[in-house]
Amino acid sequence: MTTSERRKKILATLEQNKVPVSAGVLAEKFSVSRQVIVGDVALLRAEGFEIQSTPRGYVIPAKEEAELQGFVGKIVCQHKPEETEIELYTIVDKGGEVLDVSVEHPLYGLLSGSLRIRTRSDIENFMADFKKGQTKMLATLTDGIHIHTIKCPDYSTFEEIKKELNGLGILYS
């Protein structure tokens, strides 16, 4: 298989999957190293394909159909890293999906990471990866202040999430 053929197959694999696919899974599928997959994805992005990296792997974002369903809003939060789980559980348990996290860095501007967390299992996996990775949350760059984009079934669900987070002292005001 040529590199061009492999990239086409990587793209086809991502288009067929609604959930993220890890570089490790793709590497095994195409009998190459994880680093080769990382390079292939970078080149696909350079060609104009919208491929997002999430903590669980690569995904091609849903198109207009999913964007038209529900309500998408942003919240600003501030909390300690050890309060991340309660923040995420609150959002998910109230019916929201955490699409991303962003921080406003004084030097680099807006930095963001795709999360796509919609279940308690997603949170458990995210936190396990965080704890074993010996890394820091983006929000540590900004004294805990960060922005989440949240997708909800409707606006009232979004407002309920905000109310609950405010009651926990997590919503920034």
Rank of each mutant, 00 (worst) to 15 (best):
H146W: 03
G73Y: 02
P153N: 14
E164D: 10
E97A: 11
R56G: 05
N166R: 14
E97H: 06
G96N: 03
F158H: 03
K63Y: 06
V92N: 06
E164W: 00
K136D: 13
H146N: 11
I91A: 02
K131T: 05
F126R: 08
K74F: 09
D143S: 15
I51W: 12
C152T: 15
V72D: 11
K63I: 03
D154I: 05
K163F: 13
L88V: 01
S112Y: 13
H79M: 13
P81T: 05
C152Q: 04
L88M: 12
K94D: 04
T54H: 09
T90I: 08
Y155A: 11
E87G: 03
G113C: 05
Q134K: 14
E87M: 09
S102A: 15
K131D: 08
L99I: 09
A66T: 09
L115E: 05
E64W: 07
E67K: 13
G48H: 09
K162P: 00
A62S: 11
E164P: 01
Q69E: 12
T142E: 01
P61V: 09
Y108L: 06
T142A: 00
G96C: 04
R120H: 12
E47M: 03
H148E: 06
T140V: 08
K136M: 10
L88T: 02
Y108A: 05
R56H: 05
R116D: 07
Q52W: 15
L115K: 07
I51Y: 12
F158L: 03
P106W: 05
A128D: 13
L141I: 08
A128K: 14
L107K: 10
Y89D: 12
G48M: 05
G167H: 06
E65R: 12
L168E: 06
E65L: 10
E65D: 14
Q78F: 01
M137P: 00
H105N: 09
S112P: 04
P106C: 03
H146G: 02
S156H: 14
E164T: 11
V103Y: 01
Q78T: 06
D154R: 09
V103A: 02
I75H: 00
Q134R: 13
S102H: 05
K94H: 10
L165G: 10
T54I: 06
F71C: 05
N166K: 15
K163D: 15
C152M: 07
L165T: 08
G109R: 08
S156L: 14
K80M: 07
E124T: 09
N166F: 09
E85R: 13
L110W: 11
T84E: 15
G95N: 05
A128E: 14
K136T: 12
F158V: 01
K163W: 08
E47T: 02
P55K: 07
I51L: 09
Y108D: 02
E67S: 11
R116K: 10
A66P: 00
Y108V: 00
K136P: 02
A66L: 10
I60T: 07
M137I: 02
I75L: 09
V101S: 11
I91W: 00
L99D: 01
G95D: 04
E83D: 15
T149F: 03
L138P: 06
E65C: 01
L99M: 08
T84K: 12
C152L: 03
E47N: 03
L111C: 01
S102D: 09
A139F: 12
L115T: 02
G95R: 06
I123N: 04
H146D: 02
K131M: 07
E64K: 11
F158P: 00
K132N: 15
